[in-house]
Amino acid sequence: MICQNPAMKTIGPWRPGLCRQLQKAFVTGVQKLDRTELETACEGYSNIIESMEGCTLYKGTLSSGVEICVASTTITRLKDWSKSAELTFHNKIEMLSRVNHKNFVNLIGYCKEDKPFCRMMVFEYTPSGSLSDNLHVQGLEHLDWSARMRIILGVAYCLQCMHDLTPPVVPMDLNTKMIYLTNDYAAKVADFSFWKEFSQKAKILGVDRSRRCVVPDKETNIYRFGVVLLEIVSGKLPYSDWAERFLKDDENVSRMIDPTLKSFNQNELDVVCEVIRDCVQKNGSERPTINKIVGKLRDGIGISPEQAIPRLSPLWWAELEILSADET
């Protein structure tokens, strides 16, 4: 639990302006938001979800009760924020705003101010933590086999949507730490890794990494998806020799299953293992497209796109659907 700093200044009463801005964003796209309103929503930026290289994630609550996640750069001075960083920031906003899928941690707003300096993006909030935490942290609710299969299909359907966009949107660093879970444990793919390109660490080293930011490609994304699948079914971190040995030995398929699982479906496991082997082939050109992967997984596991999304839509999704209907 995060405690309030007693020395922190008192935040003034909440004003409804941000809610109106977000309502507009639900229909018209990503909106520029006010820093002081976000400060109020995030309890003076004391409510930290997670810190990662180049970025801090805060939980916020709007006056309407809608929960949000605010991602803020760790850069604190305008002079440390280059022109190329600003261009990359705006390009990322434009890119993420094109993804509209219920298995994606959707971008709903951004904030940029120079005095005091801030660069932030506002996303929907996912309350059940990362997939990595739910697989590896003791004390969290156990993910059974059916939940893991639903997560796999949710990620696959989201990637299919992203890859099919023109131009495609490919997550920079797909892994279980960048997949979050809703209240009913539906998967939400996030893309926060790009913030490290602006990190203070890069500035100290004298390198503006945003100038050489490498655009991820579909083949690499498919490989990382295969690694994610291996981690989901094994319950182990996949960066070890055992993973490579498993991929070469068909007889080891059942032995690599997460021992904490009380049961699993052998036919579904066989399908997932076949997809893993296809995804992690050394020659990228031989890896399947996400459309072929989705077809194989859906045929073998039988979870539709409708079954993979959150059963209870977050409040902001419900408002989006209502307001979109009003606009038409």
Results as ranks from 00 to 15, higher is better:
Arg209Val: 10
Val280Asn: 11
Gln200Phe: 05
Gln307Glu: 15
Phe264Ser: 06
Lys83Asp: 11
Val170Gly: 08
Asn106His: 05
Ser199Tyr: 03
Leu323Glu: 14
Val227Ser: 04
Thr36Ala: 11
Lys83Cys: 01
Leu87Arg: 09
Gly284Ser: 05
Met162Tyr: 07
Arg298Ile: 09
Ser199Ile: 05
Pro167Asp: 06
Arg311Trp: 10
Leu165Asn: 09
Lys59Ser: 09
Leu33Gln: 08
Glu37Lys: 00
Glu286Trp: 00
Ile2Pro: 00
Met52Arg: 15
Gly226Tyr: 04
Asp133His: 03
Glu43Lys: 08
Val275Asp: 05
Arg287Ala: 14
Asn100Ala: 03
Leu261Trp: 09
Ala187Val: 11
Leu174Pro: 08
Met256Arg: 12
Lys32Arg: 14
Ser46Ile: 01
Ala202Thr: 05
Leu269Met: 11
Lys296Ala: 04
His142Gly: 00
Val170Asp: 01
Asp299Met: 10
Val233Met: 14
Asp133Leu: 04
Ala202Val: 01
Glu94Leu: 05
Val105Cys: 12
Ile75Glu: 15
Ile290Leu: 05
Leu323Cys: 05
Val137Gln: 13
Cys3Ala: 13
Lys292Pro: 01
Cys161Tyr: 14
Ile108Asn: 01
Phe225Leu: 15
Asn5Gln: 08
Gln160Asp: 15
Asn283Pro: 03
Glu37His: 03
Ala71Asn: 07
Ile11Val: 07
His136Cys: 09
Cys42His: 06
Arg255Gly: 11
Val155Thr: 07
Leu320Ser: 15
Tyr125Lys: 02
Glu219Asp: 12
Val280Asp: 12
Val253Glu: 14
His101Ile: 09
Asp184Cys: 01
Ala156Phe: 10
Ile2Asn: 07
Ile303Trp: 02
Ile48His: 01
Lys218Phe: 10
Leu131Tyr: 12
Ile68Phe: 06
Asp191Met: 04
Ser210Tyr: 05
Phe89Cys: 07
Met149His: 04
Lys9Tyr: 10
Leu131Ile: 12
Arg209Tyr: 10
Ser132Glu: 13
Asn175Arg: 13
Glu124Asn: 09
Gly60Asn: 07
Leu181Trp: 01
Val228Arg: 00
Thr76Leu: 10
Pro305Ala: 09
Arg212His: 08
Arg150Pro: 01
Leu312Lys: 13
Pro6Arg: 00
His136Asn: 11
Gln200Asp: 14
Tyr125Ala: 07
Arg119Gln: 07
Glu321Cys: 02
Tyr58Ile: 03
Ile49Asn: 06
Val227Thr: 14
Gly206Tyr: 15
Gly65Ser: 02
Glu219Ile: 04
Leu269Ile: 08
Arg245Gln: 12
His136Lys: 04
Val122His: 05
Leu33Asn: 11
Ile257Ser: 04
Asn252Arg: 14
Cys42Ile: 01
Ile276Val: 10
Ser72Lys: 10
Lys92His: 12
Ser128Trp: 03
Ser263Ala: 12
Glu319Thr: 07
Lys292Met: 11
